[in-house]
Computed example of a mutant assay.
Amino acid sequence: MTPLRIAVLGAGLIGRRHIQTILAMPEVAELVAVADPVVDPAGLDIGPAAWFADAQEMLDRVKPEAVIIATPNALHLQQGQWCCERGIHFLMEKPVTVTLDEAATLVQAVRQSGVKTLVGHHRRYLGVVQQARQWLADGRLGRLVVASVVWATRKPDDYFQTAWRTQPGGGPLLINAIHEIDMLRHLCGDIHAVSGVKSHANRGLAVEDTAAAVFEFDNGCLGTLVCTDAGLSPWTIEQGSGENPAFGYTGQSAYRLVGTEGSLELPVLRAWSPRVTGEAAWDKPIVGDPLLPKVQDPYQVQLSHFQRLVRLDEPPVVSVLDGARTLAATLAVAESSQTQARCVPRAF
């Protein structure tokens, strides 16, 4: 299988992670170009790839067969449309777009163009997530009852020197919580109603620094999420999984899935079940057994999947359409916090 000729749009934090991943996997992909209008390329290792300040010029001159879009959220729709117009397959970093109307426009453009797409909800590729999903599919927890997630960390002050991170759309709801909401959808199923609140009391910026939500799933499960980038804690999936080297490893789980026959913690996998099979009750002892996690770099697994998606027509783990549904559930949290009412996410 020949490597994908890939270009990267955006050389910020996440763009650099993609660049490093591509350069580390020459059998999967060849980095042919990078485009960013602001970043100084002198400090970047992009191998022999060409550098452009203008993304459209790069697309027209280099003609990559695939693109990773890792630019600010407001540019996603336009750049996705550019790829559709040129027949270029693309992996779009999350969120897929800023608004649901934009998402609907992009979904239609993808359908009409026939290009193959992924959205960068990379945690679906974590080994522990794949293991947890298999446990649920095998019915080892019984019927899923509740799920809870905490994502709490403190971003440094200089993080907010980038202007768009201080404005609505640049906060933890769309940047961070959207990952957790996608994970809840991936593990628990589709969401049919949301109740949410958000606050910007800690930093006083236009963007929120804290959000919380209750999710009602189609299968009857209820879920909760608390997310903040203004508080110090050991409870993020990054700290518990070690998937992001920028986060110190804590060995703590941020997810708890509770079923009628048992429970599961992740990303530090521990399964809870009755000590005596069949004796699932509050007055019966339960035991927690650590599970050996499958360790893999989610960005590398994602890139390999992107290659197979393009070359072998493998079904996408998370398409633009699926990313739009995650965005709808995420924005429903914001809408609910504004209306102070339960919200039904827009259907796609």
Rank of each mutant, 00 (worst) to 15 (best):
A201G: 05
G231P: 00
H200L: 10
A55N: 08
V115N: 03
E314S: 14
T2D: 14
T105M: 13
Y299P: 02
L106H: 02
A29K: 11
S253N: 04
E261P: 06
L118C: 02
G127L: 02
E216R: 01
T2Q: 06
P64Q: 11
N219M: 07
S337T: 04
Q108R: 14
R308P: 03
G10Q: 09
P315G: 11
A201R: 09
Q131M: 10
P172W: 00
G127H: 01
F348C: 09
P48C: 08
H186G: 09
C343D: 03
V258P: 01
C221N: 04
F215I: 08
P26F: 11
Q81S: 11
Q239S: 15
H192I: 14
G47W: 08
A147F: 03
E27N: 10
I237R: 10
V276G: 05
D101W: 00
T117I: 04
L266F: 03
E314F: 07
L141V: 07
P316R: 05
E102F: 13
K198Q: 15
D229M: 10
V129P: 02
G251T: 02
G259W: 08
W135Q: 10
F217R: 00
G80R: 07
V258R: 12
V344T: 15
E261N: 12
T339V: 09
V39Q: 02
V129D: 05
T117A: 08
G120V: 05
Q20A: 15
R342T: 12
I181G: 05
E180H: 14
W272Y: 15
A33V: 02
H121S: 00
R346D: 15
V295P: 07
D60A: 06
E65W: 09
A212L: 13
V149I: 14
V96M: 04
V145F: 10
G240C: 07
L141A: 10
E279N: 01
S304G: 13
I178V: 15
H121P: 00
V318W: 00
P298W: 03
Y249H: 06
E57W: 07
G87Y: 01
E238V: 13
G47K: 07
L59Q: 07
